[in-house]
Design a binder for these strands. Structure first.
Lengths: 349, 349
DNA sequence: AAAGTTCATGGTAACGTTCCCACGAGCTTA
DNA sequence: TAAGCTCGTGGGAACGTTACCATGAACTTT
């Protein structure tokens, strides 16, 4: 026998039970100062007795604050975006705010639909990974918002939170140098992707700083898929390749594909070919060897995006573009062929 | 220069512009029948001109329907639950319903907090993977809800949607038999998990049907982690093991760990040891060899859960427990050692 | 032709809050 | 002691909808 959804207590029920007016109850609940101890006490008791819970719909209607935020990401099923969602969710929960989550599938039409849904739900603001390449829908959005992800680059004058690709590339190049791979091959994504240019620029800067001619680095490109990485690796292996054999891959899925190609060529990773990925997807932990990679701070991005959005909603000073640092995750796909390696290994044991 | 969030148009603005009463506007928007074509036309034009969008907060307040559903899952970062969320999201969007997503981290306290948040947001109902093992919070929830996942088993008298473990096990045992592994080893999860008993029962039923003594199957157990699977596989390899060497693993992470253990023992998968997983996590596609596994219908579960919930909210007849079928995903970790194998391979080429 | 029915519409009262103004009691200030 | 101030409180008026009842016109039935 279930307890049917019996009539919910309203603020008036609480007021009557406590013998005060609804104004007083509202003040107690809002934590307002001018309340006698006695009144507060009676209200609190009445709240407990009636099981009263504030109706957020009514609150939102009257105050204009729904206590809802929107999150529009390409696909919640993608582990990176799931991390972002999780971070946003946790941060929002701290302020008693709930998140409406939508997946756009990189489709501008779906994006527009979702933005409309958010407006109707009267969210207080939204965190968006923009897919539309013009600003029309977003301009029309008419609500506070923060962009996330690298596609936000298209809109330079907008608040955004993303990962620091330049720092990530530096991190990767540094570890490669340290392990004796001063001139790794590069495996890039498609030219259409914005992140590609940033990646390449950071590599060049690193090379210039270290007095390496960027032109000597073998370069291949493909799409951000396992199959793309497999094929690109095949091409790299078929071509001329001097120096230590290491590849810095701009995407973990591609890196995983590259690893498969290495095995298919009868070579071993990392003994024959070292691979460094970029993303930090969980699947990298389960390959053999585990994929050494640079992890994007997905959760942090979610957290900061919410904070940034709340600041904006509250009218607090805004921070412009925020780039969060990435982290190296070592798992075994990077061989150490530096001069220091044997000594280091000996000292380690 | 941004278009500030200028005053939103209300139903009254639309009514004035169309020269009708707000009742008429409301009727047009609700798709009510008794409307003259002329009035409908003018209202629609006025809606377009003002950019009017229904305020869901106000609608919810008046009608008692917020157009919001809650989804409480253990962790949106877990690929299975992300699939469920995605299915639910897509299905809900079709009915213009938005989803509030929460992660409970298998923590009863967090679960209770989230349920409270859902109640305050006045969601119309909730989809819950229950972690609390008593019904108190849920009983108190006082709203329509549907359980999902195997932990729903604890509450037999409740609407729920999950995967059909018995069917999945049958599928797995059948393919194992077909490939010449009539008596595989079993690798199970911890005794505390409900799914374990169901898994084991289904295996036994299969054995009885095929006249195999279930007792001859080697059995190991561990937790649902890569490391757990690695260790359990180590124990299996160390023990006595007759017959064809195949393992039916009750969880993909464990299966991936088992695969690592096989490699560490200097053996090959699938040539020396065949592995069949259960879950369908994406990482299984990137291991080497790819993990052949039985995929749970995560997205379908999300979809059906929403449908089931909407039915319940609308007072339509409810369906009790729903178990959705799983699917075999072949990727290469299962060798064919049956008598038919050579012929079959020859015919295939 | 009177009475009933349907249709298209308008007016108004909720829904549960918060916000604002008013008011009396007790206090401080001149 | 009169005027002003603060404190604690109560009483409405919104907020934007939908639900319900009322109304008059056109039509159908007896």
């Amino acid at each position: 026998m279930k307890n049917g959804p019996r009539q919910r207590a309203t603020i008036i029920d609480v007021a009557e039970r406590a013998g005060v007016s609804k104004s007083t109850v509202a003040r107690v609940l809002a934590g307002s100062a001018s309340i006698s101890d006695e009144a507060r006490d009676r209200v609190l008791k009445a709240v407990a007795a009636t099981g009263y819970e504030r109706n957020h719909l009514a609150v939102g209607m009257r105050s204009g604050r729904s206590g809802l935020l929107g999150l529009v990401i390409p696909d919640i099923t993608n582990p990176f975006w799931a991390e972002v969602a999780r971070g946003a969710q946790d941060r929002a929960a701290k302020d008693d705010i709930s998140l409406l989550v939508f997946s756009s599938d990189w489709d501008a039409g779906k994006e527009a639909t979702h933005l409309r849904a958010l407006r109707r739900a009267r969210v207080d603001g939204a965190i968006i990974n923009p897919v539309a390449d013009n600003f029309d829908d977003l301009d029309r959005f008419g609500l506070p918002f923060v962009f996330i992800g690298s596609s936000a680059e298209r809109f330079p004058d907008t608040l955004s939170v993303g990962s620091d690709i330049a720092q990530a590339v530096r991190l990767g190049m540094d570890i490669l140098v340290e392990r004796g791979h001063p001139a790794p091959a590069l495996m890039l994504g498609p030219r259409s992707r914005l992140a590609r240019a940033r990646f390449l620029r950071a590599v060049h800067e690193h090379c210039v700083a270290r007095d390496i001619d960027p032109e000597i680095l073998p370069v291949e490109e493909s799409d951000y898929t396992v199959e793309g990485g497999r094929k690109a690796m095949g091409r790299l292996l078929a071509g001329p390749w001097r120096g230590s054999r290491a590849v810095f891959v701009a995407n973990d899925l591609m890196a995983l594909g590259a690893m498969i190609a290495v095995r298919e060529a009868g070579l071993r990773c990392p003994e024959d070919i070292s691979i460094l990925g970029f993303d930090g997807i969980p699947a990298g932990a389960f390959s053999w060897p585990g994929l050494t990679t640079i992890e994007k701070p997905g959760r942090q991005i979610g957290i900061r995006a919410v904070e940034c959005l709340l600041d904006q909603i509250a009218g607090r000073p805004e921070q412009g573009r925020i780039f969060l640092p990435c982290r190296l995750v070592e798992r075994g796909s990077l061989a150490d062929v530096s001069a220091a390696a044997p000594a280091r290994a000996a000292a380690g044991r």
